[in-house]
Amino acid sequence: MKWMPTCRETTALASRAMDERLPFTERMGMRLHLAICENCARLNRQLQEMRRLFRAEAAAEEDGTPGLDPDARQRIASTLQKELGA
């Protein structure tokens, strides 16, 4: 990598930085780029915001979505019944 990553490279680094601590050179390159590039800084904020939304959503009650449909329930019930009867 050159002394400063491109926008494309920076988005990959910003994403990876959400998963682990970047090696020193990559971390410095990313910070430098984010400091001077409005688009990449915005993308980085949006990735963080997205994570926040997802975690909040995952923590919410498991309700709104539909459960097992009757056919699937029936299939599972008969498989279980076979096992229980065996």
Binding site: E62, D63, T65, L68, A72, R73, E83
Partner: peptide
């Protein structure tokens, strides 16, 4: 059943796979 299905559906993004997961879970539990 519904609870397990929803948890599986959220992770697997497929009704079919979620149904498999619920069935395999109940069989393993048995």
């Amino acid at each position: 059943g519904d609870y397990l299905f929803r948890v599986a559906r959220r992770q697997l993004h497929s009704d079919e796979l979620a149904e498999d997961a619920v069935q395999e879970t109940l069989l393993a539990a048995l």
